[in-house]
Amino acid sequence: HIECVVCGDKSSGKHYGQFTCEGCKSFFKRSVRRNLTYTCRANRNCPIDQHHRNQCQYCRLKKCLKVGMRREAVQRG
């Protein structure tokens, strides 16, 4: 199976330009649609994997963008 490029979980297909799991797909869509801004409580390099992906939204969104998920691919409302 193909892994989610963000957290390594099982990918459910290509979403917003990259293969991601449902969790990262939904997180990215929600973040972009609502134009959410997050803050990192650590050093902005938190581990984002299957077990830690919900611990830091700032670093999760940063990783989504770093691996090539595209904001412009998210349809507005």
Rank of each mutant, 00 (worst) to 15 (best):
H1Q: 14
H1C: 05
H1N: 13
H1S: 05
I2Q: 02
I2M: 09
I2V: 02
I2S: 00
E3G: 04
E3F: 07
E3T: 09
E3Q: 08
C4A: 00
V5P: 15
V5G: 11
V5K: 15
V6L: 00
V6A: 04
V6Q: 01
V6P: 02
C7L: 01
C7M: 01
C7F: 00
G8M: 09
G8Y: 02
G8D: 15
G8H: 06
G8W: 06
D9I: 06
D9A: 07
D9N: 08
K10D: 14
K10E: 08
K10R: 06
S11N: 07
S11A: 06
S11W: 06
S11C: 15
S11M: 08
S12M: 08
S12L: 05
S12C: 03
S12Y: 03
G13W: 00
G13M: 10
G13R: 06
G13A: 15
K14R: 06
K14L: 14
H15T: 05
H15I: 13
H15A: 10
H15P: 14
H15K: 01
Y16R: 05
Y16F: 15
Y16D: 14
Y16H: 01
Y16I: 05
G17L: 04
G17W: 04
G17F: 03
G17Y: 04
G17C: 05
Q18N: 04
Q18W: 04
Q18Y: 04
Q18M: 13
F19D: 09
F19T: 08
F19H: 10
F19I: 05
F19K: 06
T20P: 04
T20E: 08
T20K: 00
T20W: 09
C21N: 02
C21V: 00
E22F: 06
E22K: 10
E22W: 09
E22Y: 04
E22M: 11
G23S: 07
G23V: 04
C24K: 02
C24N: 02
C24H: 00
K25D: 15
S26M: 15
S26P: 01
F27P: 00
F27N: 06
F27W: 02
F27R: 03
F27Y: 02
F28R: 02
F28Y: 04
F28W: 09
F28E: 03
F28M: 03
K29W: 07
K29Q: 12
K29N: 11
K29G: 13
R30G: 09
R30C: 13
R30W: 07
S31E: 04
S31V: 07
S31H: 07
S31D: 00
V32I: 08
V32E: 09
V32P: 04
V32S: 04
V32W: 01
R33I: 13
R33V: 14
R33L: 14
R33A: 14
R33Y: 03
R34C: 01
R34K: 15
R34T: 05
N35Q: 14
L36T: 11
L36F: 14
L36E: 14
L36H: 13
L36W: 08
T37E: 15
T37A: 13
T37S: 11
Y38M: 09
Y38Q: 03
Y38L: 08
Y38G: 04
T39V: 11
T39W: 12
T39E: 15
T39N: 14
T39G: 08
T39K: 08
T39P: 04
C40S: 00
C40Q: 01
C40Y: 02
C40N: 00
C40E: 02
R41N: 15
R41T: 09
R41L: 15
A42S: 12
A42C: 03
A42E: 13
A42K: 11
N43H: 05
N43R: 11
N43E: 15
N43M: 06
R44P: 04
R44E: 13
R44L: 09
R44A: 13
N45G: 11
N45M: 05
N45P: 11
N45C: 06
N45H: 06
N45Q: 14
C46L: 03
C46W: 01
C46H: 03
P47C: 06
P47G: 07
P47Q: 12
P47F: 10
I48S: 05
I48H: 00
I48D: 05
D49C: 02
D49H: 05
Q50G: 07
Q50H: 11
Q50Y: 09
H51S: 12
H51M: 12
H51I: 06
H51N: 14
H51F: 06
H52W: 05
H52C: 08
H52Y: 06
R53F: 03
R53L: 09
R53W: 05
R53M: 08
R53Y: 15
N54S: 10
N54I: 13
N54P: 11
N54D: 09
Q55N: 09
Q55E: 15
Q55S: 09
Q55Y: 10
C56G: 01
C56Q: 01
C56D: 01
C56V: 01
C56S: 02
C56H: 03
C56I: 02
C56L: 02
C56T: 00
Q57H: 12
Q57E: 15
Q57F: 10
Q57Y: 15
Y58F: 13
Y58K: 04
C59K: 00
C59V: 02
C59Y: 01
C59M: 01
C59N: 00
R60G: 04
R60F: 14
K62N: 14
K62I: 15
K62P: 03
K62G: 07
K63V: 05
K63Y: 05
K63H: 08
K63L: 04
K63D: 00
C64D: 00
C64L: 03
C64R: 00
C64G: 02
C64N: 02
L65A: 06
L65V: 10
L65K: 04
K66D: 10
V67P: 00
V67L: 08
V67M: 13
V67F: 08
G68Q: 02
G68R: 02
G68L: 03
G68I: 03
M69D: 00
M69P: 02
M69R: 01
M69W: 02
M69E: 02
M69T: 02
R70I: 12
R70E: 14
R70F: 11
R71H: 08
R71C: 09
R71S: 11
E72P: 04
E72I: 05
E72Y: 07
E72R: 03
A73W: 10
A73P: 08
A73D: 14
V74D: 09
V74Y: 04
Q75F: 10
Q75I: 09
Q75K: 09
Q75P: 12
R76N: 14
R76D: 15
R76T: 12
R76W: 11
R76H: 13
R76G: 14
